[in-house]
Design a protein around this nucleic acid. Structure first.
Length: 391
DNA sequence: GATCCACGGGAATACACGGATG
DNA sequence: CATCCGTGTATTCCCGTGGATC
């Protein structure tokens, strides 16, 4: 992606000066193929995966580290490379019916943010392993599992699966995950990725290795920001001093740093500037709620929930006095064809998962349980821009 | 015809308050 | 005084239905 982005940037060069050259490179939810300065972690992951190069499966493992430490970036990049490598050696399984004779394992990356059921999990696995398209309707979970068993059973080398964002899903917890793996052939090795410390996690009873990812150091984070800016923004748009300011503020969290850069860029763009200023950055900081959830989580929500959120972020404060009022305001929009009940349920469900937060209103009017309003737990400008880009 | 899942809607439960009760 | 009860809201839970797809 890095090289593509650089090429695209040149292609899109116009006479008119503009700030953003490539939104995709700038988006805080996209990962680059060569994360900066993460050499040591790559080495430790490769140490763990070493048996693969002799055609063997590594044991199970757990990768952990704090929010924004680059776990997903590293694992997606590494697995993409490994997968490409093993495909080039024609060692993967090609169709569900006819398996070639693999000499090294296949690699799959699954994100539990996007796979919300056992059915979807099997589908994701099957999709990673088979060329044919995988049905998402009309076939039973059992059937899907059988197909997967067949394919894996016929594969000599097996598969290494990275499962990202464990312990973030309400639908699939550690128990469900272990159940799924238990029902599959043993030539499957998994690499779970999460934020929780290994000692407080049941999955580690099934792992031989744990690999820790440290939060970013400030200098590294500055590099990350400068690299992103060089990919996504016009020349000289972000000066080093501002990148430093953002890195300080983000305190090692690359997600927050990149999201802040993204929001600041949006401000500068609306103001028709071709470089970022102090005030762009400052107002980006202000837009972050006290504790912000990952934009990746927001953007992994089902389409209609995102739609409701998209409407929500455009409401005035007085329309958000209570959940009922918010529901009413959103439903009043003619482009919303969801029922009031559903809109309201969505709001409550999203509050439950932490994407928004319910705060009780202090105005006790006497009668009944006091209402609460929902507050965003993510920077709205970032979501607005990313959402609109995808439509 | 079978399947999954998103929706819709309603039942059950929680909470806050004031007033009645022991 | 502490507890219970009734009422009115808010919130959570749950299940049937139907669309889309195989």
């Amino acid at each position: 992606m890095d090289i593509d982005a650089r090429i695209k940037r040149r292609q899109h060069r116009t006479d008119e000066p503009r700030l953003v050259e490539d939104y995709e490179s700038l988006a805080p939810v996209s990962h680059v193929s060569e994360p900066s300065d993460r050499g040591p972690v790559f080495e430790r992951l490769l140490d763990h995966l070493d048996p693969v190069f002799d055609g063997q499966l590594p044991p199970n493992a757990y990768v952990y580290g704090p929010f924004g430490s680059g776990k997903s970036a590293i694992v997606t990049a590494l697995f993409a490379h490994l997968d490409r490598l093993s495909t080039e050696n024609s060692s993967v399984i090609h169709t569900s019916t006819r398996a070639s004779t693999p000499v090294s394992p296949a690699f799959a990356y699954l994100d539990l943010r996007e796979l919300a059921s056992e059915f979807a999990l099997y589908g994701g696995l099957l999709d990673a392993v088979v060329d044919d398209s995988v049905p998402d309707h009309g076939v039973s979970t059992e059937e899907l599992r059988e197909r997967l068993r067949d394919v894996l059973g016929g594969s000599r080398a097996g598969i290494v699966v990275a499962v990202d964002h464990v312990y973030e899903s309400d639908d699939i917890g550690a128990a469900e995950l272990l159940d799924v793996f238990a029902g599959l052939p043993s030539n499957l090795s998994w690499l779970a990725v999460g934020r929780n410390r290994p000692e407080e996690v049941a999955l580690t009873e099934h792992t031989a290795n744990t690999i820790r990812v440290e939060r970013y150091r400030r200098e590294t984070l500055v590099d990350v920001l400068m690299t992103r800016a060089s990919l996504g923004l016009t020349q000289q748009a972000l000066d080093h001093e501002l990148a430093r300011r953002i890195a300080d503020w983000a305190d090692g969290n690359a997600h927050h740093a990149l999201a802040a850069l993204f929001v600041a860029t949006d401000r500068a763009t609306t103001a028709n500037r071709t470089h970022l200023t102090e005030s762009d950055v400052a107002s980006a900081f202000e837009e972050f709620p006290g504790s912000s959830v990952s934009l990746g989580r927001v953007l992994a929500l089902p389409a209609n929930k995102q739609f409701v959120l998209r409407k929500l972020i455009d409401l005035d404060a007085d329309e958000c006095a209570s959940v009922a009022a918010t529901t009413e305001a959103i439903s009043a929009d003619p482009s919303v064809d969801l029922s009031r009940g559903t809109v309201k349920r969505y709001l409550y469900e999203m509050a439950e998962t932490g994407v928004v937060e319910r705060v009780e209103s202090e105005s006790a009017t006497g009668k009944g349980r006091p209402p609460s309003r929902v507050e965003l737990r993510f920077p709205p400008t970032a979501f607005r821009r990313l959402y609109d880009l995808n439509r």
